[in-house]
Amino acid sequence: MEIYLIRHTTPAIERGTCYGFADLDVANTFTEEATRVKQLLPDKPFVVYASPLQRCSKLAHFLFGDDLTKDDRLKELNFGDWEMKRWDDLGPDALQAWMDNYVYARVPGGESYEDLFNRSVEIFKEVIAKNQDAVLVTHSGVIRALLAYVTNTPLENSFELRVEYGRIARLRVTDGKLELLGVNE
């Protein structure tokens, strides 16, 4: 069984803005980026899951049509009160307090990285249990959490796992064992 984790293409948002649950549209480079992703995928049937946020669902529809399942557990980290604010405007104390313990500390009105990890792994295990080739079109936080799970990387170190826009991480499941085949393809 193979699982493809695909990060959405570049979002239409100004750099330096905090976003996670915000339902952003995609940048005007969408068709070019999505076409590149499509060319990298094998021509075989997949069970397709996507975050319901449009930056993921648009890519999933472009790649696979309407035969997909949208699941809230594939959403990016909920930044709560910080959503759509500039990182620079959050204040150094608030931001530093979260950065010092981002795995377990919840963003005001939002969630922690551990919360995201737990919901991501929950759906991932359900996908594996179906034993069918699958695609998850999602966000960097979810992909990073799943790669940490697969590679037994501590969450504190998982931000070293770089996940780029419009890129694929490939996994193989053989006899219940998970293997990472490639990242940022």
Rank of each mutant, 00 (worst) to 15 (best):
M1V: 02
Y4I: 12
Y4G: 01
I6G: 01
I6S: 02
T9G: 08
P11C: 09
T17M: 10
C18L: 07
C18G: 07
G20N: 10
G20S: 06
A22T: 13
D25S: 14
V26N: 13
A27L: 06
N28Y: 05
T31R: 10
E32K: 12
E32I: 10
E33W: 06
E33Q: 13
T35D: 13
T35I: 06
K38T: 05
Q39L: 10
P42C: 11
D43S: 11
K44S: 08
K44T: 14
K44W: 00
K44D: 00
F46Q: 12
F46Y: 15
V48T: 02
Y49S: 08
A50N: 04
S51F: 03
S51G: 05
L53A: 15
L53K: 10
Q54G: 05
S57V: 11
A60H: 03
H61T: 15
F64Q: 11
D67V: 09
D67I: 09
L68V: 07
R73W: 02
E76L: 00
F79D: 04
F79K: 07
D81H: 04
E83H: 01
K85A: 12
K85N: 13
D89T: 03
D89L: 04
A94E: 15
A94I: 06
L95Y: 12
A97D: 14
W98L: 00
W98E: 03
A105R: 13
R106E: 14
V107I: 15
P108N: 04
G109M: 10
G109L: 10
L116K: 07
F117N: 10
F117C: 03
N118R: 15
N118A: 13
R119D: 04
S120F: 07
S120Y: 09
V121E: 05
F124H: 09
K125I: 02
V127M: 09
I128Q: 13
A129S: 14
N131L: 01
Q132E: 15
Q132K: 15
A134P: 13
V135L: 04
L136E: 12
L136D: 09
V137Y: 05
V137T: 08
V137N: 05
T138W: 05
H139F: 08
A145P: 02
A145K: 07
L146H: 08
L146Y: 02
L147W: 11
A148K: 04
A148G: 05
V150S: 01
P154T: 05
E156W: 10
E156F: 05
N157D: 15
S158I: 05
F159C: 00
E160G: 12
E160K: 13
L161W: 06
L161P: 03
R162F: 08
R162P: 00
E164T: 11
E164A: 12
Y165I: 01
Y165P: 11
G166C: 03
A169G: 10
V173S: 00
G176R: 09
G176N: 13
K177D: 01
E179K: 15
L180E: 03
L180V: 01
L181S: 06
L181N: 08
G182K: 07
V183P: 11
E185H: 08
